[in-house]
């Protein structure tokens, strides 16, 4: 009797151990590993995503009968449910998020240019540029976003910087949004549009090579540069 009693009292603690271990494992799997490997970056589209890629997913799922909402490029609950149904059918984890595996199964390319955009070899650059703008300046006005893109392109044309768009964007420490991984999100429509305008030649920054947010920057050197334009929160300088 006494033994059974003890056992009964142990149950809550055993449960706690399991919950604890489970939680630890979950944290490890979802947070720690993704933190070191940057796995979170591979999630492509999820609830709240917008844009041409979402449209493409919706279009395909509609063709196959998984989706019956509007093909509007907005990832809402209908799209999420359709994706879940598709995932179940194809033996994928039914989480309603279009990651790499799901994107492959649906047949859209991941991490590259939006499928609907059939332009020249520039589309790859456009997308990377747009990601960087989205990470760096999504809170800025449209003109402010074009200006940030123009700074990246001005750097490509200046001998003091790397000579390709990717080289400039991924130069260690050059952009905060690249260093902390914020850049690896699908860019918004506005960022894509801004990237195209900048590639087409628009430069609201007046030829600037640097910009900074005076409220956030502690870098003394950058303060010493001559300011040539102020757009929104950003100071643009040579």
């Amino acid at each position: 009797m006494l033994y059974r009693d003890k056992l009964k009292r142990l149950i809550p603690f055993i449960v706690i151990i399991f919950i604890y271990a489970g939680f630890g494992g979950w944290v490890y799997k979802n947070y720690v590993t993704s933190l070191i490997s940057g796995d979170a970056a591979s999630i492509l589209l999820r609830w709240g995503s917008r844009g041409a890629e979402v449209k493409e997913v919706q279009k395909r799922l509609k063709d196959w009968g998984f989706y019956n909402g509007a093909v509007d490029g907005i990832y809402g609950w209908r799209t999420a449910n359709a994706v879940k149904a598709f995932q179940k059918k194809h033996g994928l984890k039914a989480d309603g998020i279009v990651g790499n595996a799901t994107a492959n199964a649906i047949g859209i390319k991941t991490g590259t240019a939006p499928v609907s955009q059939k332009t020249t070899s520039r589309s790859n650059e456009t997308y990377t540029l747009a990601q960087c703008i989205h990470g760096e300046a999504r809170g800025e006005s449209y003109t402010g976003q074009v200006a940030v893109a123009a700074v990246i392109l001005n750097r490509v044309d200046d001998p003091r910087f790397p000579k390709t768009i990717a080289g400039v964007i991924f130069q260690p420490g050059a952009f905060t949004a690249v260093s902390d991984g914020q850049m690896f999100q699908p860019p918004g429509d506005s960022a894509l549009k801004a990237a195209r305008d900048a590639l087409n030649g628009w430069d609201p920054s007046g030829g600037a090579l640097y910009y900074y947010n005076p409220a956030k920057t502690t870098n003394k050197w950058i303060w010493s540069r001559p300011i040539i334009k102020v757009i929104g929160k950003h100071y643009f300088c040579k």
Partner: peptide, 18 residues
């Protein structure tokens, strides 16, 4: 120049070299 651009050194320390 390509290799220099990949090093984690602040820009103002290497802009003239680049």
């Amino acid at each position: 120049a390509e290799n220099l651009g990949q090093l984690p050194i602040t820009h103002n320390a290497l802009s003239k070299t680049e």
